[in-house]
Design a protein around this nucleic acid. Sequence first.
RNA 1: CGGGGCGUGGCUCAGCCUGGUAGAGCACCUGGUUCGGGACCAGGGGGUCGGAGGUUCAAAUCCUCUCGCCCCGACCA
Length: 493
Amino acid sequence: MADEKLPKRSEDFSAWYNEVIARAQLAEHSPVRGCMVIRPNGYGIWELMQQALDKMFKDTGHENAYFPLLIPLSFITKEAAHVEGFAPELAIVTKGGGKDLEEPLVIRPTSETIIYSMYAKWVQSYRDLPILLNQWANVVRWEMRTRLFLRTMEFLWQEGHTAHETEQEAEEEAIRMLGVYRAFMYEYCAVPVLIGLKTDSEKFAGALRTYTTEALMQDNKALQNGTSHNLGQNFAKVFDLQFQSRAGTLEYAWNTSWGVSTRMIGGLIMTHSDDDGLVTPPKLAPVQLAIVPIYKTDAEKITVMEAAEEVFREMKAAGIRVKLDDRDSMSPGAKFFDWESKGVPLRMEIGPKDVTNNTVVIVPRVELSKEEPPKPGRKQKLFVGRMELLSRVPQLLERLQSQLLENAIARREANSIRGVTSYDEMAKLIERDAGFIYAGWCGSAECEAKVKEETKATIRVIPVEEFRSEKPPAGCVVCGGAARHEVVWSKSY
RNA sequence: CGGGGCGUGGCUCAGCCUGGUAGAGCACCUGGUUCGGGACCAGGGGGUCGGAGGUUCAAAUCCUCUCGCCCCGACCA
């Protein structure tokens, strides 16, 4: 299909990213600036993400519901920090049915306001708490500059919204869902993330505290791909979300909200894909195995197709997402490139020799360290007996899944620099896109702003203990004052 | 909103400077030969040149306006 080579990551990362998406037919720009059409190959990834996450949400006691797209403008303006944060990116409907509306309606940029206004009606006493809901929805934020998946004006996401009796319960919920995201990123996306707290300047408009998952892309820029907020009582106070407590007093509820979006797909691409095109982790690959039959003569075609169809049925029955590529007008070589650029984890070749030997050839999309190494300069080819397929294919998919995570962790570690103490050194590291830079921070907004101003890097996360360095930093890398936190600096998307 | 670039078959672009029959590669359709890493030959379909106005015997080409897109900067999951 493709007639040219991809741009190389090392030469033009941004052009490479766009081209990977185009080749894999994941998405396209829409006629409206900043919006995106998600094609089946891309939406298939999203559906698999949804399925996995939805189960995780249900398993942690949440239910799905749906709240409307249109929100009264007055709702958004009720919470001061919230308005301030979102005002510049609101899309507002002022006309309906040919007439000016009495009150303009906002197309939701997020649903805190409409949801907590409803919760207020549903909650009388502490017995009505907690409320643990999630919704799958689209939201609109009027962005200046957009990139497919990473930042589009309309995007798909899920937003969880909960209400609790106590601050501690809300805090536990925010952290529990951060943990869910972290597990999802590792186990399904094979995207290793740092987790921790956002600084005040980076937190959600209207939150008490914002927790984040941060991944490092192959160009060494950070991507925030999940957030979980402890909203405190900010929204409860504005929308009268009150309940009678166990002690009989009237109290405001404590809220959390948490979300992940189609941005994760961008993160997936920029984490795993290579100069041959898209790479998808098996758990999120709409097609996990592509079977390419190879034949010359009509007689060969008959026996090869027979074998290929049998393997296809076998794999399908075993629950593998499999495709038999029976396109007659395309050469096998062209099919190899096609499936590679689409990121399919395993490709299977079945030719006359395989039929005779009762074997197949399997080529993994990325090299597997636990399998026989490839010949120099060649792709790794695994010769597998037909009888072993039922055990080997799932095993290879698992190995590929863990290989991707291993590779990504290794890359992140190779591009994480700890113990930076001098501001000049940090500035130089940022200048050459060194990756995640760990350094001390005094906690002042001035020091944070100075770095952003001078280097474009920001504090991505104040990591939880697990991700901190063994030796805590003593001083702030900017002002030299006592360090209150170890933080991770990086340029970001 | 500032700075730069670009709008020509589905895609990537040439043609514009110096006005005169709309082109190429890829993709697509038909037939044949091919097929274990991007096949080849022959034939074929498809474009009011982003839009409007102007100059001219004549505009993809020159002029004016307009719309849209992309890249770089200030805000953001």
